[in-house]
Each structure stands twice: as C-alpha cells, then as structure tokens.
Design a protein around this nucleic acid. Structure first.
Lengths: 195, 195, 195, 195
DNA sequence: GATGAATGAGGCTTCATTCAT
DNA sequence: AATGAATGAAGCCTCATTCAT
C-alpha cells in the first residue's frame, strides 16, 4: 500500500506534532509515532534522519517565524511603550485585536512543543528566544525586575496554550478560551504597572 | 567503604528530591540518583524498596500536611468569603501575612514534585488534592467558570514554585520572590472578581 | 546480518520451547534464550512483546486443543464408565489405541510446559484444565477420594512426559516409551479399582 | 536481642528447610529466609558461608544416611529378590511394615529437597544416589528395561512426598497418606511383574 | 554474634537507531 | 519508498555475597 510521498510524510508530522504537544518531545517514542501514523518505524527514518530532525522539521518554521516576528515587533515598539491605561484598553479589547496581534502566532501546537522542550539540539535556541521574549515583556510593561515575572509569564503562556489546545479540538473555541485566560493574567500584570 | 546510615540515606533523599523537582519523577532515573548520591544503584534499593516508595518517603509527609491544612482552611473560611476589596488588601500585605498564611506550606520543593506528578501510586491522591484546591479557589474568588482558570492558577502556582526554588538556594530569597510573583497573579485574579 | 523472518522466529520458539520444558517457564531467562537462539536479547522483543506472550505463542494452540478435546471426551464418556476388565483391556491394547485416543495429544513438549507452569497469565487457565482432568480421572476410574490420588496422577503424567520427551529426540521412540510407562501406572491404578 | 547460638542457627535451618521444600532450592532467596527466621541477612552468612553450604547443612546428614541405608539394603537383598506374591503381600501390609522399612527414611522434607535439586554442588551426588536407587528398584522388581520406569518411579516418589508433606502439617497424617499413595502405585508396578 | 551498608551481576523491558532487502 | 530484522544502551528491580562496625 503505497501513498504519495507528501501524504505519509505529512501524516508522520501530524501525529508527531500531536504527541509531542501532549506528552512532550522527550516522552514520545518513535514506535508510537510510527504506529499512529500507520507506517513502519524504519520508514520514519527514511523521511527523518533521527528524532531530533523530526522535531526540527516540525517546529523550525514556527520557531523561525516567531524569531522574526519578535525582532520586528521589538524594533517597531521600541519607542512605543504602553501606558497603564493603554495596556488596560488593549486587554479589554483583546477579542477584537487578537487576529492582528502578534499573540496570534502563539496559538499553535508547535509553540507548546517549543516551550516545553527539555532536551534536543534546539534547546539553546529556545532559551535564546525565551530571553528575548522576556526582555520584551519587561520593556513592554515597564518592569524593573530581575527577570522572574517575565520568565514566569512565559511559562504561564505555555501552560495556557497547552491547556486550551488539548481541551478544545476546535481552534475557534481554543482561541476564545485562550483570550479569556490571557486577559486574566494581563490584568494582573497591568495592575503592577507604575504608570 | 561504609558511611553512617543517616548520611547516605539522607544524601539519596536530597539528590532524589532535587532531581524529582527539576526533571519530574518520571524523567528521573534511579541510575542518575545513585550516581549523584555517590553510591551504587543496588544500594538505593537497600534503603527504598522501589522508585515509588522513594518518592513516597520524600513527599508523603508534605502531602499529608497539605491535605490537613487544606481541610482546616476550608472549614475556617466557609462563611468567610472575601470581597474584592478585602482580597486586594490581602494581596497588598502578603509579605507580612505570609508566615501565618496557609500559602507558606507551599513553598517547598516537595510541593513542586507533587504538583508535577504524572504517574506513581500517589497520582490519585494528588488529583484529589488538586480538585479540592481548585474548588476552594473558585469559592474564594467567587469564580463562576468551567474550571479552566482555577486549574490554570494551580499550574501557575507550581511553575512559580519551581522557578523560585531552583533559582534561589536561599529559602528566604525564594520566599520574597515567590510572594512578589504570587501577588502579581493575585492582582489579575482579583481584577476579574465581580464583587 | 539478517535472516528470513520465519527462520529466527522459529528458532526463538524452538529454543524457548526446549528451555521452558526442561527448566520451566519461571527458571528460563530471556538472555539465555537469546543466546541459544543466536540472536540479541532486544531482538526477541521484536518478535514477542514480552516473556508471557512468548509463552502464549508457544502453548496457547496446544492448550486450546486440549481444552476442546477434554470437553469432547467428557461429553462422550459421561455414561460410558469403564469396568475393571474393560480398563485392563484398554491398557493392554494401548499401543494400537494410542493414535485414536485422546492421550495422544498429551505427548507434546508444550504439555509439559503447561503442566509445570507456576506463574504467567495462563496459570488460572491451567488450573481450570487440571481440575477438569482430575474430575474426569476420578469419574473414569470410579475413585472415591479427596483428590490426592488424581492430583498426583496428573503430576506423574507430567513427569512421564518430560522424561520421555527429554530422553528421546525421536518422537516415535518417545511415544513407545510413554505408552509403556503409562501402561505401567495404569495397571497399578486399576489394581485398586473396586469393580 | 541475642539468643543462644543453637537457637538462631536452628531457626535458620528450619525456615530454610521449609522454603527449600516448598519452592525448591533455586527459587528461595536468602532474604526471605532471613526475614522468616527473624534475623538479618548478614547473620545467616555468619552461620553459613554461602547458600550452598546452608543447603548442605540441611540435607547432607539425610543424604549420607540414605546413601548408607541404600548400600546396606542393597547388600542385604542381593539374593533376596521378591516374588510377585511376596511383593503383593508387602504392599498389602505396608502400614504395619512401614516403620521398619527403609521407605520410612524417605518421608522427610529433606528428601523432597534433594529430589528436586536442580543446581548446587550436591547435584552430582544426588544423581549418583538416584542411579543407585534406580538400579535397586530394577533389581527388586525384576525389571529388564533401560531405566525409564525406575527413573520415573523415583520422580513419582518425590512428587508423592512433596504433596503429602506440604498438605499435612501432621507427620502422622502425612504418613498415612503417603502409604496410601505409594501402595496405589506399587500395586500398579507389581501388576506388571512377570513372575 | 550480629547488623546493615554496599556491590555487581543478572532478571525483564523499552527505546532510538541502523541496515539489508 | 518501504519494511522489518537487529543491536546496544538504558530503564527498574532482585539476588547472593562481602565487609566494616
């Protein structure tokens, strides 16, 4: 039973994405991926040289995209810091603003995978991204701190994402829920803002 | 080469506690514990019949303590729901109140282990505890929701704890940091309160 | 270095069957099976998910066959109890009758394995079979006892089988020997019959 | 808590004897013996250098006794072969004759241990004994065979013994049962005798 | 005498990976 | 392109045994 190349490669990627998101990269076995993708273990290695490269095939585009967006966003907003009131307004209208906001690109299974990564060759790159994200959050919200709030906010983000993405198959519902939760924490952060 | 019993058993427990907290119970191998505790794999089994019982030796007292405190706290606060203003005041003075607050007993490596537990015979017990915590949070903050926020809040709690406990060897510093972060999220939650 | 699938799987089964018969399922190590089957330990798990399933692959067909034959035999012989003389005659002509007799299906390495089983998921099923066999023997030979003789007769059966199967590679010789031994004990049993 | 030397050594021997009989030498762990004998693992090694020597302490006297009795018995009965009628009579009166018969010394937990031995340094000695026993049975019952009946008879003996010794704590009851079973098979054997 | 700490080998099993076909 | 055979390392655990105290 032979399928078009695209077909099976895609299937492997989809299955792997799902498993990586739900169980984490480290706790997912190639065997299970093969089984759920309806192919043989050996065949996965035909498409992907090893587990790490399978991971890369899945998350690298997303990772690069985020890296790029982050850079853009940071440049754009350098002299565009929000005041407390602006931030509040932003949070209040997040529903409508979401699609145009950079936040949108986080609502993605692959982001969850990245944020939960504990090993793999991409770990370093993830850390770098996190640091950038963190710095940006600090800037954005006028935080004067040693990095803990911002770090945590990112973890919370990851948690939120995993929760809503696992809970709701339907991406629209996931979005609504995500926004709700995000708003909640936004309010907290904003509450701490000095101006 | 023989050491005082307390010595090595304690070392195993310390190493295991640390590893369990940092990597999670499931992703920690007995080999690594043995290696870091400077003993042989077989010798661990001299002190602890199996991995699960090693875990229990570490977290059971803490678990029981929390269970007890939760029950106490819930009974005491049954007809003592906070208004928005009271909650705000509570958050503001958390620094002074912390030591007497039930929150204090959460600042513990073992709590992190518990909250991240994914298997083991204690899983069920953890789930029960979480449900109780969740219900209490809902009650405490007048939440009318399907459980997502409250579930998330707990995950955030776990994250906070792990972060500050890993970052600061010194428990006092960890405390200060934990309170700060907790306050931040409190503000968010309180911001959502209706009354 | 790869062999035809049948080849190595068959070799594993043959080696395991032999070892299980000679040493018992419990006292046979997977390592030894791998070694004697000229393959690696891991590779056995390629063919058989675990030790218990390797056992099942070996004995299940035989077990089911015996279960079926027992049921048939019991139904057929319900109102057909042997008199002493008939039994004697039966024993005397066992050589000729053997091939058509239900006894034939016992002359099998796998039966030895079954009869000596002490653990495994099939233990219960073995016990059930034994009870049936026992009851049947009691009925067949008009025994009025507490179960000890009949239990023992079965153990003896197992012993006989193991002996002749180990001693004689050639199944025909084993058969002759088995019949001889069986006759010997049969006559003994009959000598005690009341009618 | 220190006891008289005799005391604890005796306790170890008793426990070990029981376990060895019930589960076999190979499947009994020193740990279990220590636990059931209410002492420490290390202490067993104080009394017995290793597992094999513990076994020897238990069965060697019995083994030597049997070896001696066998030699005596064989010499005595060289020109004293039984006729069929005599053998029958012997079987019939086994109850009364048992105590004076050499058979008596077989009704012993240690004999069961010996007969089921599969490894240990005494294995060879056991085999030698078995061969002697076998030859004697052949002589005694005028068998002209290649050794299979006689070998089997011995296995049956072992089975009988284990059964009755495990089933009945009370040695008297065990004896009665053993005689019964033995008679049963005896009669069978005699039924085959030519003269 | 007695204890328990310590070790190393071996038990079953899973996993990522390679390779011949 | 695809399969499945094969391996070796690592996972948890038990066991006989040794040795310092």
């Amino acid at each position: 039973m032979q399928t078009k190349k695209e077909d099976i490669e895609q299937r492997i990627i989809e299955v792997a994405t799902d498993e990586f998101m739900k169980k984490g990269y480290e706790n997912t076995s190639m065997r299970v991926i093969a089984y759920k993708a309806n192919t043989s273990l050996g065949n996965i290695y035909h498409y992907f040289k090893n587990k790490d490269l399978l991971l890369q095939a899945i998350i690298l585009p997303t990772l690069e995209n985020i890296e790029y967006m982050m850079d853009q966003h940071i440049n754009n907003s350098k002299d565009n810091m929000l005041t407390k009131d602006e931030a509040m307004a932003y949070a209040d209208h997040l529903d409508e603003l979401f699609e145009q906001s950079e936040l949108r690109c986080f609502l993605d299974k692959k982001v969850v995978i990245i944020l939960n990564l504990e090993s793999s060759s991409l770990l370093e790159r993830k850390e770098k991204l996190l640091k950038k994200l963190q710095e940006h959050i600090q800037l954005h919200f006028h935080m004067q701190e040693n990095g803990h709030y911002s770090k945590l906010i990112i973890d919370v983000l990851a948690d939120c994402l995993r929760h809503v993405l696992i809970e709701y198959e339907d991406i629209e519902q996931a979005k609504i829920e995500f926004i709700n939760v995000f708003k909640l924490f936004c309010t907290g952060i904003i509450g701490q803002m000095k101006c």
